[in-house]
């Protein structure tokens, strides 16, 4: 992340939120105001890497935060830019993700963006959804 911060230094800046999945554990990293949420198969939705700094990559001041979270099957990890999470908030994200099981999992990002759009599409919006299956 520091390397990426340096590589983009002097140009336009960007936020980042990402996750790597190794086994049944996810490492979630974030810099800027993009966010990661864990929607467990049972339980309440949780914001991850919430201590991330507001500094974006390319500012030379980004301090990415890494959270390691155990994942269970059917837990859903969603990565959202501020255009997507801003209008929804925690309840809206949870509704959009939990309402998707009737459809294919590939429709979860679309469901989130549709829900956010209904509340006004004032920014670009991106959603990525991951889950373990076996």
């Amino acid at each position: 992340m520091k390397r990426l911060d340096s590589a983009l230094l002097g140009g336009a800046q960007t936020t980042v939120v990402g996750a790597t999945l190794v086994g049944e554990q996810a490492a979630v990293f974030a810099a800027g105001d993009s966010r990661a949420y864990l929607v467990p198969s049972d339980g309440r939705v949780k914001l991850l890497a919430e201590r991330s700094s507001k500094s974006r990559l390319g500012s030379g001041e980004a301090h990415p935060v890494v959270d390691r979270v155990p994942l269970q099957r059917r837990d859903v990890l969603v990565l959202l830019s501020d255009g997507a999470w801003g209008p929804l908030g925690l309840p809206g994200i949870e509704r959009a993700v939990r309402g998707a099981p009737a459809r294919h999992f590939s429709e979860v990002p679309q469901a989130i963006l549709d829900a956010a759009s209904r509340r006004g599409c004032a920014d670009d919006m991106t959603a990525v959804a991951l889950r373990l299956i076996q």
Partner: peptide
């Protein structure tokens, strides 16, 4: 583990 991952941007 198998992972399912999809994304969309608008």
């Amino acid at each position: 583990m198998r992972v399912e991952c999809y994304g969309q941007t608008r």
